[in-house]
Design a protein around this nucleic acid. Structure first.
Lengths: 224, 224
DNA sequence: GTCTATAGACAGATAGAC
DNA sequence: GTCTATCTGTCTATAGAC
């Protein structure tokens, strides 16, 4: 399941990004489409509220296709969680590495934004992540996966903050790791609140940027 | 429904606090017990996962009692949300007023903790609030209620922070309202993470206190 | 003795799994 | 497409409070 799961995740990344997985045929393609459909339906009506029927209808298949690819709705959910978290993690890592390569002439604010931008696709992601956290509170397997992912994410952001502090000779008012946690927390909270306020995807990001920027300014002293 | 709803909420507060509502008989008592049971069951298996049957079983009634008191599971959920948010808001308000009365000789950290302590009963609250937020992302009525409550809560904390800043002659590195939002966000996030890490109610609070304390220290300069 | 809350059975609907 | 399980919401008879 692990090797297969990873492969499937790759294809879902493509599917989610709107790129039809051309090299992939038949089974894999069906799987990716089912996951993409599930991603949308879960975000709309929740994990419990989503019927297998609704997922299949959205994907343009019948239930037969579903049970041929997944043994249960839960299994699909886990693969989906993995695909989404992998994508976010990958996006952040790439940005971190990218800005390490070019010794950027950007302001710290722009850097933070540019890195965190990679963690959001839009409203669907916000809802799905909330669903995952909620499930993690009740289900041990989800909890383990979530904690591992979250700590990886903090690692990356922490690394970025340390890089920044060194490059720009900044004095941090808290340890880099704590700032990383704070930044991610504020970012996520801004997105959640914006989602509840029914702000569109564009405003969503602007709001989150504003809040995070503000926090960053308050937590950093420029060296004399 | 509004007057009745408020009355029922009062009784649920008692029921939730473990105090049997003695003066109340029959109908009101049944309602309070059903809400207390629902509170627990919702936290355990989620709003969707909770069957009316399960709630009634927990409360020691049959479904007849349920439908005699609520027209639907949703109605019960809304009354419950109202009772829980009212209780939190009330608790915070009381603490804020309390520490305004006595010109406290506490440290700012102790004050923040003492105020925020009122917002948590334990793990159940954390789970239920997450459930409410998630629902608010999809349901307009829940969204309105949640936003109104959240802004009231920020108001109170903002007021407290302003009081503190004046009394202790503190220089805030951000506007009081933004600090209030930050403090509440960090507090909630710490609770959520602790819940996912399966930390007990005691540790839950300690963790949240630590994080919030740290944030407060970083955002406040003591005047020279 | 009346009135209301509760119990428990019942029917219609829908979901998951094969 | 079928089969089974489960859940909701209704309905009626009863038990108990005032």
């Amino acid at each position: 399941m692990s090797a297969d799961g990873t492969a499937a995740a790759q294809h879902v990344l493509q599917a989610i990004d709107g790129i039809a997985p051309d090299g992939v045929r038949g089974r894999e393609r069906t799987k990716a489409r089912l996951m993409r459909a599930a991603y949308e339906v879960f975000a709309e009506v929740g994990l419990d509220g989503a019927s297998v029927e609704a997922i299949c209808e959205r994907a343009g298949f019948t239930r037969g296709a579903f049970y041929s690819n997944f043994s249960t709705k839960e299994e699909l959910f886990f693969e989906l969680v993995r695909a989404v978290t992998d994508r976010k993690l990958e996006a952040v890592s790439q940005r971190v590495d990218g800005l390490r390569a070019q010794d950027a002439a950007l302001t710290p604010n722009e850097l933070v934004q540019s890195v965190l931008d990679g963690t959001v696709e839009g409203l669907l992601d916000v809802v799905l992540m909330s669903e995952i956290r909620l499930r993690a509170m009740r289900d041990d397997e989800t909890a383990r996966a979530y904690l591992a992912w979250a700590s990886s994410l903090i690692d990356r952001v922490e690394g970025m903050i340390e890089s920044l502090a060194t490059s720009y000779d900044l004095r941090l008012r808290l340890p880099a790791r704590d700032i990383a946690r704070l930044v991610l927390t504020v970012w996520e909270d801004a997105l959640i609140t914006a989602a509840i306020e029914r702000i569109d995807d564009e405003g969503l990001r602007r709001r989150a940027e504003l809040r995070t920027q503000q926090l960053a300014l308050a937590l950093v002293d420029t060296a004399p």
